[in-house]
Write a protein that binds this DNA or RNA. Structure first.
Lengths: 149, 149
DNA sequence: ATATGTGCAAATGATTTGCTCGTGG
DNA sequence: CCACGAGCAAATCATTTGCACATAT
């Protein structure tokens, strides 16, 4: 049950969705590489790796909500408003540090911050479901290449 | 110098930008109401309040980066990828709590979270410039209206 | 005077949708 | 078999851009 494909199958069954080759390939491809991805990345990778399958980008778009529901991926955010995603499986909850120059994303997790968030929400009777927490700035590498902003 | 219009004038002067009525009106209108706004809101409010001025939405879009540079507004983020903004002046730094049902945004500030962020970045030699921190879930009101998701 | 800013309309680019056909159950 | 899912192309929608004219300096 720790296998993304198994989860997908289970999810389809439980939600009376069909288990299509497209869905399988999308999930397989997403889980091939670790880290963050964009719709476009996945689309191109599937185009390359399965040239015979004429997968439409729309199919990826249509399936993303299912994968999120299935708990297979999580939505992330770009400063410019574009979505990107990341795996959930075998991937503990964490937050992000993003370099505004090179775009590199690293992860961090701080228990105290998490607990504090929960406390804040409890005080306000707000039911916390999710959060976005991204630290923005310049990474060590980019900082060294003295930057014209 | 605590007046948004003065800051705008100063900023224009320092950056050899022209001080146009459009810029003045955009800033005035933005600072009329507190809280968050979308491009569209501001556009409509200007349309209503200054019917003779045929301001184009493009002019707002074109000026937003200047206002951010001038330190007059700050960019915020929506789960769906749409931008929204908020004043900076007389508005201490804070983070956001957003209801996924009604969209209501409230603010919070927690000093310890702020400090922890700084510590995390120091450890990683990451130069922290900004951050996004949004708590997502259901507000008290929406929670009571027992929700079909 | 003249470079910058503006309105307008057309372009863009990511995402969504309508439609028809293919196929998993 | 037949409802759901896919491909494709057209539609959307927020944002950006090109152009010609207006205007702040």
């Amino acid at each position: 049950m720790l296998n993304p494909i198994d989860i997908l199958k289970e999810y389809c069954k439980n939600n009376s969705l069909r288990y299509t080759p497209e869905r399988e390939i999308i999930v397989t491809e997403i889980y091939k590489k670790d880290g963050h991805f964009h719709i476009d990345h996945i689309f191109l990778r599937i185009r390359n790796n399965y040239p015979k399958l004429k997968l439409a980008k729309a199919s990826i778009y249509r399936n993303i909500p299912h994968l999120i529901n299935a708990g297979l991926i999580r939505e992330s955010f770009y400063k410019d408003g574009h979505a990107c995603y990341e795996h959930t499986l075998g991937h503990a909850h964490h937050d992000h540090i993003r370099c505004l120059k090179c775009g590199e994303i690293t992860e961090f997790y701080n228990e105290y911050i998490d607990k504090t968030q929960q406390t804040i929400c409890k005080q306000r009777k707000f039911q916390l479901l999710d959060h976005i927490h991204i630290l923005l700035g310049y990474c060590e590498k980019c900082n060294k290449k003295k930057g014209a902003n």
